[in-house]
Each structure stands twice: as C-alpha cells, then as structure tokens.
C-alpha cells in the first residue's frame, strides 16, 4: 500500500466561466516553476482568467508544460492563443514556450501589488526552497530585496519535513499549532536538520504533536522576522508563497512584528505567476507600440 504523503499541497485548477476570452485584446500567461510546486496563470486584458497549481517534478520543462496544459483545460484556449508568456521561479529558464524569463523577486512584487493593492510596500515570499523579503513601490517595482536560500530553515521545504515527521497533513498544520495551552519555546531556527532531531527528542519526551508543531511554527516565524528586520518592514505588509497559507506561521510573524499582514482573495502561492502574467501584458503592449 502506498504511504500517504503528508507534505503535499493539493493540486487544483480553476477558470472564470464568465469571461469570454475570444473577444479580448491581450492574453498573457505567467508560469512559476518553483522547487516544490508550479503555478500557471492566464490573464485576459489584465484580469485573472485561469490558473493551475501542481507539483514540480524532476523535469522542469515537463512541469511547466503540465501546469500550463492544466490551466488551459476546459477553457477552449490553446497555447498559441496566448500572446505573451513569461517564465519565473527557479526553473524559469526551463519554460520551453516562454517568450521571456523574469526573476521571481520582480514577479512577486508585481503580483503582490495586484493581489493586495498598490499600498503594499513589504512582501515576504515564503517559497519552497528560499525566503525573500521584498520592498516595492506603488507600481510594484522592487526597491530593495533580500533572500535566504542557503538553508531550508524558514522555507516551505522545512515545513514539509515536519509534516512528514509528525504525519500531519500540511494544510492542517497552521490550525493545529494553536491547539496548545501555552506557546512553547521555539525549536532550532538555524537548521531544519537540527530542528527535526530536536523535534524527535521532544516527541520522545512526551510532547504532543500540536506542541511540537507550535514550537516549529514559532521557530520559522522568528527566522523570517530576522530576515525581514534586516531590510525593515514598511506598511502595508503581505505574505506570498505557500507558507502564506499557513495561519500558524503567519499569525506568529504578525505577533512578532506587531503588524497585521494583508489578506488576499486569491491563493498566495500564485502571486509569482500573476506577476509574470502582468509583466507579459506590459511587454506585449510595449512591443505593439514599437
């Protein structure tokens, strides 16, 4: 019997049936090939039309193609109908159908500006393999950024390691972390391997899973707050990336910073792909003018 993979986020796709893309002037797509998951977003005339989120496999071009095909599913649209396609994420140069590759830093700033509004000035992108603190202006242009991709502490991968260790579905971790009488001290925040062995020790001591989860969420929040404090936090503040969906980490970051993060209507994990699609629109319009 196959073992359950507790660390996996659900894969899904969506499209807006109320939009008739055939009558639209600009159709652009953004494909964010991350280390853990890939997202594709299709925008028509600057409006969100369709998106898909799936797992990144060992083959980045194949993952890009798979997620794009899934976003196009049941829309009646083909890849050739899209006027401009932008690749982003760590696998951005491996998106075979992309017209241009743009860094995920610029795309998350642009996508964050679209999803949270033009008042957002600090974006924390908590991705699968790295964490980025980004400052941006009212147009979503990056003014300052800092990333930490040296180790897995404070990244989505770190959380996945814990979900697997504790056999708790990753989407439940946030809520479960609040089911403690008193906030426990954080486990090691400098290394996921150390944190994992520390957590194993705590479980052996008899700590319930919820308490261990709370200790790790606490450690992760502290880790990224240190990163944020290096460049400073300017209001408004928003969190993108997969960890943005983990209320246990988000709430603890808010508490430590003393600032409430803006809440998004859409999936925080799609911010990079949204930004890439918006870059595509701007580049398409620029090319049409020249």
């Amino acid at each position: 019997m196959a073992e359950r993979e507790f660390w996996r986020w659900k894969e899904y796709n969506w499209h807006d049936e109320n939009i008739d893309w055939k009558g639209c002037d600009t159709i652009t797509a953004g494909v964010d090939v991350g280390s853990v998951s890939s997202q594709a977003v299709i925008m028509v005339d600057g409006k969100l039309y369709a998106f898909a989120s799936t797992r990144t496999g060992s083959d980045s071009p194949q993952s890009a193609q798979k997620v794009m095909d899934w976003a196009l599913e049941n829309t009646g649209m083909n890849l050739d109908d899209i006027h401009y396609k932008v690749g982003t994420g760590y696998g951005r140069v491996n998106v075979p159908f992309a017209d241009k590759a743009i860094t995920e830093i610029a795309c998350h700033a642009r996508g964050g500006n679209f999803m949270y509004g033009n008042t957002v000035r600090t974006i924390l992108d908590m991705g699968g393999q790295d964490c980025k603190a980004i400052h941006c202006d009212e147009r979503g242009k990056v003014t300052n950024f800092l990333m930490n991709d040296k180790c897995a502490a404070g990244t989505g991968r770190g959380m996945e390691v814990f979900a697997d260790l504790l056999a708790v579905p990753i989407e439940d971790i946030g809520e479960l972390s609040f089911d403690v009488e008193k906030e426990p001290p954080p486990v090691s925040s400098t290394c996921v391997v150390f944190a994992k062995s520390e957590a194993s020790g705590l479980l052996r001591k008899g700590w319930p899973k919820n308490k261990v989860i709370a200790a790790y969420c606490n450690a992760m929040a502290h880790r990224v707050v240190t990163l944020l404090e290096r460049i400073g936090v300017e209001k408004d503040f928003a969190i993108t990336g997969g960890i943005g969906k983990n209320i246990g980490v988000v709430k603890r970051i808010e508490d430590e910073l003393g600032i409430e993060a803006l809440k998004a209507d859409g999936d925080t994990q799609t911010a990079g792909a949204v930004g890439a699609a918006l870059f595509g629109k701007a580049l398409l319009e620029k090319s049409r003018k020249s």
Binding site: H135, K141, N144, F145, M147, C151, T190, C191, R230
Partner: peptide, 16 residues
Amino acid sequence: MKANYGYMDGSGEYYI
C-alpha cells in the same frame, strides 16, 4: 533598487 546578495546562517549575516 537595493539588492542584497548573501545569506545568514548560524554564525552570522553575510550580505553584499
């Protein structure tokens, strides 16, 4: 734009 390259680890923060 201020671009920070480097990392922080258990021994400190190293950014250019």
